[in-house]
C-alpha cells in the first residue's frame, strides 16, 4: 500500500482520530513544562534580567511561523502534482495557525524590545521579515475565503503559495540589504552547531520548541479534520439537492 492512500479523506479521518488527542496531550505537557521550567526554574540573566524569559515563547513561535509556511508550500506542491484533497485542505488549515504563530512572535518581540532596545518596534530585518510573512498569510487566507469553488480555490492558493514563497525569500534578503538591524543573531544556529545561549536556558527552550512543533501538528490535524468535515457536508448537501 502506498503512503498516498493515507491521504484519502476517509483514511485520513480514520488514522488521525486517535492521534489528535495524544498530540494535544503531549504538546500540552511539553509547552507547559518547558514554559514553567523556563520561567521559574532558571536564573535571571545578568544583562537582561527576567525579560529574557520571553524567549521561551518568542523563539518557538517564530520557528513554527516559518515552518508553517514551509509546510503549506509542500502541501500546495503535493496538491498541484498529485491532487490529493487532504493536502490542499491541510495547507488551508495551517495558514491561520501559522499566522497566529507569526503574531505571537511579533507581539512577544515587541514586548521584549521595549526593555532591551527601548522601543516596541524597530524596522529590524527579522521583525520586518515577520511583518512581511504576516502579510503573506493574510493574502493567502483572503484568497481562500474569496473563492466559492473549493478546487479552484485550492489551485489558485497553491499558485499563490508557490510564487509567494519565492518572493518571501527575496524579501528576506532585501530586508537584510535594507537595514542591518538591532536583532541579535540566532540563538540556536543549527548549521554551525554552536550556540550563544547557556545550557541552563537551552534545555527548556528546546522543550518548548518541540512542544510548539507538536502543538502545531495537533492544531493542523484538528483543523484539517474540520475542513474535511465541512467539505463532506458541502458534498452531501449538493448531492441531496440533486437527487
Amino acid at each position: 500500500m502506498s503512503m498516498w492512500e493515507y491521504a484519502n479523506p476517509k483514511r485520513f479521518m480514520e488514522w488521525t482520530a486517535p492521534v489528535v488527542p495524544w498530540a494535544f496531550g503531549l504538546s500540552g505537557v511539553l509547552v507547559v513544562g518547558g514554559l514553567f521550567w523556563g520561567f521559574f526554574l532558571t536564573p535571571d540573566a545578568d544583562k537582561f534580567g527576567s525579560t529574557v524569559k520571553i524567549i521561551y515563547l518568542h523563539v518557538p513561535a517564530a520557528l513554527m511561523a516559518i515552518n508553517a509556511w514551509f509546510m503549506m508550500l509542500v502541501a500546495s506542491v503535493v496538491w498541484v502534482i498529485r491532487r490529493h484533497h487532504v493536502s490542499a485542505l491541510a495547507a488551508r488549515a495551517a495558514a491561520p495557525v501559522g499566522m497566529v504563530m507569526t503574531v505571537i512572535a511579533l507581539v512577544t518581540g515587541a514586548i521584549w524590545g521595549m526593555p532591551t532596545w527601548g522601543t516596541y518596534w524597530v524596522w529590524d530585518p527579522r521583525l520586518t521579515s515577520f511583518m512581511i510573512l504576516f502579510l503573506f498569510y493574510l493574502g493567502y487566507m483572503a484568497l481562500w475565503e474569496a473563492i466559492d469553488d473549493p478546487d479552484t480555490a485550492a489551485d489558485l492558493t497553491a499558485v499563490l503559495c508557490i510564487v509567494g514563497s519565492i518572493f518571501a525569500i527575496l524579501s528576506r534578503y532585501a530586508v537584510r540589504f535594507w537595514n542591518q538591524g538591532l536583532h541579535q543573531g540566532t540563538s540556536v544556529p543549527v548549521v554551525t552547531g554552536g550556540r550563544t545561549i547557556a545550557d541552563i536556558y537551552f534545555i527548556p527552550l528546546v522543550i518548548c520548541m518541540f512542544g510548539f512543533g507538536i502543538l502545531f501538528i495537533a492544531l493542523v490535524l484538528l483543523r484539517t479534520r474540520t475542513e474535511i468535515r465541512a467539505r463532506r457536508m458541502r458534498a452531501l448537501t449538493a448531492r441531496a439537492a440533486r437527487a
Binding site: 503573506f136 493574502g139 483572503a142 524579501s171 532585501a174 540589504f177 535594507w178
Partner: peptide, 23 residues
C-alpha cells in the same frame, strides 16, 4: 473571476511588491 476582486488584488500584490520597492 471574483466580484470585488480589486481590494483582494491589492492585498495579494502588495507583499510581492516589497522587494522591488526596497531595492
Amino acid at each position: 473571476g471574483l466580484r470585488r476582486g480589486g481590494l483582494l488584488l491589492s492585498l495579494l500584490v502588495l507583499p510581492l511588491y516589497i522587494p522591488t520597492l526596497m531595492f
